[in-house]
């Protein structure tokens, strides 16, 4: 039998203490990540909210930490900001609807039509583009839609159409995956059973397919909606001179941080409202 070298006495004592106290072990495991995320993520988020209520000294550009709701009220009452917010929400809605429309046939094919041995390959084909750089994908559309580019006269040019198409392209896998998982649940004999029990196609769709699709699409929409709300680079590259909320935040963060912070809170509010609305579908349990 081999004898392990005796550990120095202090490490042995520490380990003995750890062995006897599971709660101490738990704290040791949890503390590093928890401290990191609280100090470097939650605290910054709170600070961001506070900054929205601070003021910028118009001479020095420095932030003065006097509590004032002026910036927030300014954002909430300036039509230009609100219109931009509205446009951003409309783009996010358009992207989400388009993603769902494209995801449905693809996911149905993957789950119900394709041969089972092909399914892993199809899943890989859908998921891989998520890892191809975000910037490169937007860049690809900039090249594709260029006036003298591949599409030629068929290109809609740089503008809102281009923004919606590009964002749909970027976030499509986030919609396909939950819908695919949802429709996979219909595999086997659910559809046959419904038919055998005398359900007409529409009834089957309403009572069997829809209850599966609704939470799946809602789960996908969390990503397509949230990611569209915060985007600003896509609009820069294919949106022409148009602007979304993210552009306003980006344009102001180096000169007027309180204004940028107040503007950044808008997508947070929209997102929180959206999450509360779709929580009823049970979609959040699937993330």
């Amino acid at each position: 039998m081999t004898t392990l070298p005796a550990p120095s006495s202090w490490t042995r004592r520490v380990q003995a203490v750890l062995h006897r106290h599971p709660r101490l072990r738990l704290s040791g495991l949890l503390a590093p990540a928890l401290l990191w995320l609280v100090l470097l993520y939650l605290v910054p988020l709170v600070l961001l909210l506070l900054t929205a209520f601070a003021e910028t000294d118009s001479f020095t550009g420095q932030i003065t930490w006097t509590l004032s709701a002026d910036t927030v009220l300014d954002v909430l009452t300036t039509p230009a900001y609100l219109f931009t917010a509205l446009r951003t929400v409309l783009v996010a809605v358009g992207v989400t609807v388009l993603c769902a429309v494209l995801a449905l046939p693809l996911a149905t094919y993957m789950a119900l039509v394709a041969a089972p041995r092909r399914r892993p390959l199809l899943v890989a084909l859908v998921v891989t583009p998520l890892w191809a750089s975000y910037l490169v994908k937007v860049y690809a559309w900039r090249i594709l839609l260029a006036p003298e580019g591949v599409l030629g006269g068929a290109s809609p040019g740089y503008g809102w159409t281009a923004v919606v198409v590009t964002l749909t392209y970027l976030w499509l896998p986030y919609m396909v995956m939950p819908v695919y998982t949802g429709i996979s649940a219909l595999r086997g004999s659910y559809l046959e059973a419904a038919a055998d029990l005398g359900a007409r196609p529409w009834t089957t769709f309403r009572t069997v397919v829809l209850p599966v699709l609704k939470p799946a699409i809602a789960a996908g929409s969390v990503f397509t909606f949230s990611l569209s709300l915060g985007d600003y680079i896509t609009v820069q590259l294919v949106g022409g001179t148009n602007q979304m909320l993210g552009n306003l935040v980006y344009a102001n963060f180096s000169t007027d941080l309180p204004l940028a912070a107040a503007l950044a809170v808008l997508p947070l509010i929209v997102m929180a409202a959206y999450l509360l609305t779709i929580r009823r579908t049970g979609a959040l349990d699937r993330l």
């Binding site: 470097l40 993520y41 605290v43 910054p44 988020l45 600070l47 961001l48 900054t51 949230s226 990611l227 709300l229 915060g230 985007d231 600003y232 993210g246 935040v249 980006y250 963060f253 941080l257 940028a260 912070a261 950044a264 997508p267 947070l268 997102m271």
Partner: peptide
């Protein structure tokens, strides 16, 4: 959360 929120929060800190 949208990247811009994470980004500007860290930037503020």
């Amino acid at each position: 959360l949208p990247g811009i929120v994470t980004g500007i929060a860290l930037n503020t800190l």
